[in-house]
Each structure stands twice: as structure tokens, then as C-alpha cells.
Amino acid sequence: MTFDAQGSLFGDGGMAAPARTSAPDPQAIRGRLGRLLETLRKSESMPLSDKDMRMWQTVIPNMTRWLPDDEADAIRSEFAYEMDRLGASV
């Protein structure tokens, strides 16, 4: 038998990540993405910093997973169009 004088920093290993209790609200997703797209539509030049632009390029595909496929495709397509129009690479 071995004895670990320090003990485990992570407990006995029986810990699990908390389970998600609810799915994201599609209305909240629509609102947030709608506001972003509206900002992009109204802009003559890129309104996002490089950091924010890269973040949204990652977040949009993930957020739209919670929407119906046709709606998600339309949002991703419009985002790509606006990024192209404003001179950003997607």
C-alpha cells in the first residue's frame, strides 16, 4: 500500500462537470445575432476590432447550432456577405 502525504489536488477523481440544465434560448440568440447583423448592415466600414471580428467568426457558427437549419444558414450567409462587403476575410 502506498501513502500520498500531499493528497490529491483534484479530489478523489469522482468529480464531473456540472450538467447543463437548459438549452440556450433561441429568441435570445436571434436578438443578439440580429443586433450584430444590423450593426454590420448599417456600417460603411468595419465596426468591429480585429479581435471582435475573429471572435464573431468563431461564435456565429456555434450560436446558430441552436436555431433551425434554414435560419442558421441564412444568418451565417448574411454574416459572410457583410464581412466580405466590409473587406474582412471570413
Rank of each mutant, 00 (worst) to 15 (best):
R54A: 15
R54L: 14
R54E: 14
R54I: 13
M55K: 11
M55C: 08
M55A: 12
M55D: 13
M55R: 14
W56R: 10
W56V: 09
Q57W: 09
Q57C: 09
Q57E: 10
Q57F: 08
T58M: 14
T58V: 14
T58E: 12
T58W: 13
T58H: 13
T58D: 12
V59P: 05
V59I: 12
V59D: 09
V59T: 11
I60A: 03
I60L: 04
I60V: 12
P61D: 05
P61H: 07
N62R: 11
N62L: 11
N62I: 05
N62K: 12
M63A: 14
M63T: 07
T64A: 02
T64P: 07
T64Y: 02
T64C: 05
T64Q: 02
R65M: 07
R65L: 04
W66F: 00
W66Q: 02
W66E: 01
L67Y: 00
L67A: 02
L67N: 01
P68K: 00
P68R: 01
P68F: 06
D69N: 05
D69I: 03
D69C: 01
D69T: 04
D70V: 03
D70F: 05
E71T: 00
E71K: 01
A72W: 02
D73K: 13
D73G: 07
D73P: 06
D73C: 05
D73S: 11
A74F: 03
A74I: 02
A74H: 05
A74K: 10
I75Y: 02
I75C: 04
I75A: 00
I75E: 04
R76H: 03
R76N: 11
R76K: 10
S77C: 02
S77F: 00
E78V: 04
E78S: 07
F79D: 06
F79W: 09
F79I: 06
A80L: 11
A80S: 08
A80Q: 07
A80R: 07
A80I: 06
Y81F: 08
Y81Q: 12
Y81R: 13
Y81K: 11
E82H: 11
E82R: 14
E82T: 07
M83K: 10
M83S: 09
M83Q: 12
D84E: 15
D84R: 15
D84Y: 15
D84C: 13
R85N: 14
R85G: 14
R85E: 15
R85A: 15
R85Y: 15
L86Y: 08
L86F: 10
L86A: 09
L86V: 10
L86W: 09
L86S: 10
L86P: 08
L86I: 13
G87P: 12
G87H: 12
